[in-house]
Write a protein that binds this DNA or RNA. Structure first.
Lengths: 191, 191
DNA sequence: GCATCATATGTACGAGTGTACACATCGTGC
DNA sequence: GCACGATGTGTACACTCGTACATATGATGC
């Protein structure tokens, strides 16, 4: 035993040798960084710090930073779309579907804003990155199809846009809309 | 005449000594860069290049890059808000106001997407910068008030959100909505 | 003409970045 | 046990960035 006082990294990190889920955790860490600090501040080093992993681990698991961002945003979009899908599938009728939509919007607003910030960051990134544009496109198509379980195609598209606007405007405002106000707007549109 | 072949900067730049509008042109150049390359790629050097001005000019006219961004976004928001205001003020009645709104949305979509990209970039930036959040807030308040010339407060707020959603969703989609579809959605909401 | 000073410019520096890559470590098949 | 290849790590390098600052330039008042 010659390592009485190893001056290397802290023990907590040392013990992580060979963990199979590391790549996944790195993607999650990337999402955390994007949500908290923005895409611009999302660097190899920052992600590694959040995931408590050495810098070299980033270049081992990903060939470039762009790949990390793409995978992270893909995971985010799929996760949001899945919830949207599930809740609308579970709705037995049109009335229940409307309530589900309102609940989803309210969740987004009252929640940690984590998801909302991620979405807007994705929009901006998608404006200049074809890969991310495809991710956004797939996401939008999926939520529209989810709405089409209960509404005709035109209504689905318009309602989707209304939801987007309500969430975004509300989130950027100093006095966000209440669930009641959301309900009012949605019902007014669908009346 | 000893300057037969001056190896210095190109003549075009040399001749710009002392132009009073330079600060303004720098802000415009910043907006161009933000729209074309994104906030992340908006650096002192890139702005200076676009404005055809030496790097040192940036630090002379602005104390920091953040100041440049703040002034640029302020100019953008005010410019958009002014147009919105003017067109709605010119509308003699509710019907004309609705048409004005539809025309504004269609312009945004059919236009160069320049303004739209700037707006989304502003949203993201505002999420983390209090100064920019104030700019966004002032802009939203102003457009709501413009709408309140023709609609009650609740309707104005909801319509504002609907517009936002229509423009954003449409811009991100591979098949943007046509002016007819925009008209349909707006009329449906206000019917 | 000339002194003065706001305006304008070129260059340098330290900090932080993405990525490459040589080296260390360990599970696995024999 | 042990060789070997997959996995993990530390460090170095070339580059870009924001900003500071010494210097140059020219408009203006006298």
């Amino acid at each position: 035993m010659s390592d009485a006082t190893p001056p290397r990294p802290p023990a907590a990190r040392r013990s992580r040798r060979h963990d199979p889920g590391r790549r996944d955790r790195l993607i999650d860490a990337a999402l955390t960084v994007i949500a908290e600090r923005g895409v611009a501040a999302t660097t190899h080093r920052e992600i590694a710090r959040v995931a408590d992993v050495p810098l070299g681990s980033m270049t081992y698991h990903f060939t470039s930073l762009e790949e990390v961002l793409a995978e992270a945003f893909t995971r985010h979009a799929e996760s949001v779309a899945r919830v949207f899908d599930e809740r609308l599938s579970a709705a037995p009728d049109r009335e229940a579907a409307i309530e589900a939509v309102i609940a989803l919007v309210a969740d987004d607003l009252l929640g940690s804003r984590h998801d909302l910030v991620l979405s807007v960051e994705l929009y901006v990134a998608a404006a200049r990155n074809p890969t991310l544009r495809a991710v956004t496109q797939a996401w939008m198509t999926r939520s529209r199809h989810a709405l089409e379980r209960h509404f005709d195609a035109t209504t689905a598209r318009e309602l989707d846009a209304l939801i987007e606007g309500l969430v975004l405007h509300s989130a950027l405002s100093t006095d966000p809309m209440t669930p009641e106000q959301i309900r009012h707007a949605v019902h007014r549109f669908l009346r």
